[in-house]
Amino acid sequence: MKLTIYNGSPRRKKSNSKILTDQFIQGYTKTMDQNSYELHYLAETNKNSEHIEAFQNAENILIIFPLYTDSMPGIVKYFFESLHKIPNENNKKIGFIVQSGFPEVKHSTYVERYLKRFTEKLGADYLGAVIKGGVEGIQARPAWASRKLFHAFYNLGVYFGENNAFNNEIKNNLGKMHQLGRFRINMFRFISALGIADYYWNKQLKDNNAKNKCYDQPYWN
């Protein structure tokens, strides 16, 4: 099987989407020798015609992107518009992976409805959308803290390589935290009160000598 993968993160090769994609690809290529893939970065908008051509020639497609304002980033929307203009003749199968910074997956469920409908509009088969929250910060965490997450994406790739579909159990596990429970909300409020919740941002602000400007309102009249 050949898989055409689109990374829709504006951060390109420095993205969390790439880290998850790498894990997925390791699993996908591990199982079957004949499994191959090609990878495109949608942030390279100057290569849009190449991206479209690759889509036209592809049968199995995976699109991964981070959630931006509760939907796909602008570069992904730009790509979708291009796809909607071209005839799609061969029988394509499209799957999606949506990852977000917020821990709960509820934020991503609205765009999931759109992705399903968009795939229908293209006349392709919808393989589903794997949704994972709490991904922001994985590059700052120690490796052991992301081991379970990486393992899940590796196994997702293994199953996809063998069956050309997402494994429902892994998919459901990754997306199990639909909304924050009462305990997590109270915990968050507690660590917020202690100032711990803002540490990740305050550290970066301090490193950039910008902490004293953190509440600036530059566009306010």
């Binding site: 993205s15 981070p66 980033p73 602008g74 730009y78 950039n208 910008a210 400007k213």
Partner: peptide, 15 residues
């Protein structure tokens, strides 16, 4: 397009 740099949060807040 937004490049996801988050400079608007961590380097030049709000801008």
């Amino acid at each position: 397009f937004c490049i996801g740099c988050w400079n608007c949060w961590t380097k030049t807040p709000g801008r």
